[in-house]
Each structure stands twice: as C-alpha cells, then as structure tokens.
C-alpha cells in the first residue's frame, strides 16, 4: 500500500466518522465538531494526493487547496459557533429540535 492510498483511506474514514456524528449527535457543538472532523478527512486526502508524484518535491497545488480549505473551514466554524451561541441565548438549548432540550441544558451552561 502506498503512502497516498493510506492517506486516502484514513481521510475517507475521518470523513465518514464526522458524517455519522453530524447525523446522530443532537448538540450543536458536536455537530460543528463533526463537520470539522469531516473536513480534516478531506484535507488528509488532498495532502496524500500531493505525494502522488514521484521525486523529492510533492505537488504544491493540493497543498494550496488545503490552505484555502483551512481558511474556509476556520471562518465557517467561527460563524457556526457564533450562531450556536446565539441560539443557546435565545432558546436556552443548543440543539435544533426542542425535543433535544435536555442535551442543551446539560452541556450548554
């Protein structure tokens, strides 16, 4: 198994783990974290692809993409956290559904 394959496998696994958590965890902080894990998975795949070319120097283009992706992810995470905080202030719960209100109270304080 080549280095690229390993990175692609690990990255895909991270992506799926994040996806699973996003769908099963009601708490908004968990959901934001889950998306972060998924994006790390995508970045892993990209970093692995950069090593696909032979020789001592990796392909710089995927690296540039990862950097751009990190900038996008940082900004959207900050925004999502601000939105989650505001939802908690307004509704007293940090979940999308009122049914998950307990989770919000236990973790939001």
């Amino acid at each position: 198994m080549s280095q690229t394959d390993l990175y692609t496998l690990v990255g895909s696994a991270l992506f799926v783990i994040g996806l699973y958590a996003l769908m099963t965890r009601p708490h908004l902080l968990h959901k934001v974290l889950a998306l972060n894990i998924s994006s790390s998975g995508v970045f892993f795949v990209l970093v692995g692809i950069a090593r696909r070319v032979g020789g001592p120097v990796p392909d710089p283009l995927p690296h540039a993409m990862v950097l751009t992706g990190i900038v996008v992810t940082v900004s959207s995470t900050a925004f999502a956290l601000a939105l989650a905080k505001r939802i908690y202030t307004e509704t007293g719960t940090a979940a999308l559904d009122a049914a998950d209100v307990d989770v919000g109270e236990s973790l939001g304080g």
Partner: peptide
C-alpha cells in the same frame, strides 16, 4: 430564523465537503 439558519448552514457545509472530496479525487 436562527434555528433555520443553523440547519441551513450544517446542510450547506456538508454539501460543500462532499463536493470538495470529489474535487480532490478528480485532481488525484
């Protein structure tokens, strides 16, 4: 509006990540 925005945001980011993973594979 806030809850709708959050739901929209989670769906939108997830959609973008799926797309980006596809872009990575295409480039690879």
């Amino acid at each position: 509006a806030l809850v709708a925005a959050m739901r929209y945001m989670l769906a939108a980011i997830l959609g973008s990540l799926f797309y980006l993973l596809g872009v990575a594979l295409i480039y690879g």
